[in-house]
């Protein structure tokens, strides 16, 4: 599906286990590869993502499962928390 990149701004991001992650604030473009690199997500869910002094997180485009009225990413609980020792 082809769409304008501004249509993505503000979409809510959920994991495939229906956990709210945040909202899309920006999209990172890989100019040399001519493809989307990642989405920048802000307004994060503090219960799911550890945000110590960060405004948002970048989620690689390959982690996105689908984009429609909301964005669904793969649920990798450990990806959003610092690794425990």
């Amino acid at each position: 599906m082809k769409t304008q990149i501004t249509e993505l701004f503000g979409l809510s991001v959920y994991t495939d286990k229906a956990v709210y992650v945040g909202d899309i604030e920006d999209v990172v473009i890989d100019v040399d590869g001519k493809k989307l690199d990642s989405i920048a997500v802000g307004n994060l869910n503090p219960e799911f993502v550890d945000v110590k002094g960060f405004r948002g997180i970048k989620i690689p485009y390959r982690m996105i499962k689908s984009i429609g009225d909301v964005v669904v990413v793969r649920h990798l609980a450990r990806a959003f928390k610092p690794q425990e020792e």
């Binding site: 082809k2 769409t3 304008q4 990149i5 993505l8 493809k35 989307l36 485009y61 390959r62 984009i67």
Partner: peptide, 16 residues
């Protein structure tokens, strides 16, 4: 003004 992207492939298609 804008950028067209293909959400299935992740390719950036056009500049508007």
């Amino acid at each position: 003004k804008n950028i067209m992207v293909d959400l299935d492939t992740g390719q950036v298609v056009d500049l508007i």
